[in-house]
Design a protein around this nucleic acid. Sequence first.
DNA 1: AAGGGAGTGTGATATAGGTCACAGTTTATT
DNA 2: AATAAACTGTGACCTATATCACACTCCCTT
Lengths: 225, 225
Amino acid sequence: MNHNCSFCEHKSAAALKLSEQELATQSANCLTVRFKKNDNIIRQGTYSTNVAYLKSGLVKIHIEGPYHTQVVRIVKPRNYLGLPTTFGDKINQYSVSAIEESEVCFIDIAVFRELLGRNPAFSNQILVELCRSELESYQKCVNRTQKQVRGKIADVLLDFSENIYHSDSFQLLITQEDIGNLVDATRESVSRVWAELIKDGVIGADGKQISIINKEALRNMSRLG
Amino acid sequence: MNHNCSFCEHKSAAALKLSEQELATQSANCLTVRFKKNDNIIRQGTYSTNVAYLKSGLVKIHIEGPYHTQVVRIVKPRNYLGLPTTFGDKINQYSVSAIEESEVCFIDIAVFRELLGRNPAFSNQILVELCRSELESYQKCVNRTQKQVRGKIADVLLDFSENIYHSDSFQLLITQEDIGNLVDATRESVSRVWAELIKDGVIGADGKQISIINKEALRNMSRLG
DNA sequence: AAGGGAGTGTGATATAGGTCACAGTTTATT
DNA sequence: AATAAACTGTGACCTATATCACACTCCCTT
């Protein structure tokens, strides 16, 4: 799949700092792969040899916990997927799977390292993104452990609507089980809260198509549990 | 407090990659401050203007959650304290407080940035540490939400003994309330589990002095809750 | 089109750990 | 040394959510 990163319209904030020549180097050592819904992109426990970058689609990062898997976060396009694992450990500490059909670029890790060493603006941007995602994960963890199920589900709905799909109406392509794994609840609890939200007219659901009717109510739920 | 980073015997893994000249630059823009037990080192919500580095002592990172504060992690010496916040956001997203008397170096952020851009080995090491801590926090979060209180307390005891004090006997200088905030449990639950551990002869306690008597039992508890 | 698997809805029941209340103990502060 | 403040121990009770069980619906696949 020979392509040219220079012309890529999905460049990361970091890649925008690369020179034409650097982009050419990256192009020569980079491969784009399409994944279908539910395909595994990175598998926990395997050797990590590439940097992965999400060009389009939607993916989830998940970890095998002692009792069940936990969805750590949902990642949307223009983000790197395996950075912490690529640099922090040779073995992937988590899995990444496609929620929707997705395009992922695999960049040779040696080349990526080379670029980091050569271009300070690039490495600075990567650093910033790592820091942001660490902060985000701290915050997520606090919420996950302190809020009740209703509040956490409200958060998920708001997150999908505001940060991922940028619309009050969207196709929710993950299962209730996944939502449960994302907010630390069982499938059954998610189902019950869901039913309640529909009954109370907070959201509307037609199959997978979700529409948020009363965003204020969700905000309150997010705050008060 | 004029000192010279070159002669510092507490240098970080990253700082070891700096040249004499770079260390001199850092020395000129760096200040060491001593903090007493319980002193606040970084305060959530304030503007972050320096990189903080823990030379000696022991500190906790904590975040104000919606219902109570949560201790995110305990940090031991030779680690940077505010990196994610320094680069990811101008405002500190969490607080850092001393658990024991601690020495912290504050390094001018502009100088630190300069060093990152100038010395690839240095910036690579910082990157690696950030990645590691992100991985660690993912893992911590999974444990926190999936294990029962007994298992989580066993983890804390093992962590103190093996990673922090490197001894089966140590002074535990944090309160049960803090332990609770670290493992997401109430003070009362911690107290009950503690009493049980002493009764079962798994640990011994004489005031703040804790000794681990049956490490195997703790390991089992960590696994099975 | 029929069969099977994955996903969902909903009740009955169990339980870990939270909350409240108050006493006892240790550690600071004057 | 005395007084206050912070920390700890333990009981009684409560509740959110997990578990279990089973029926139902909606795809996929052949």
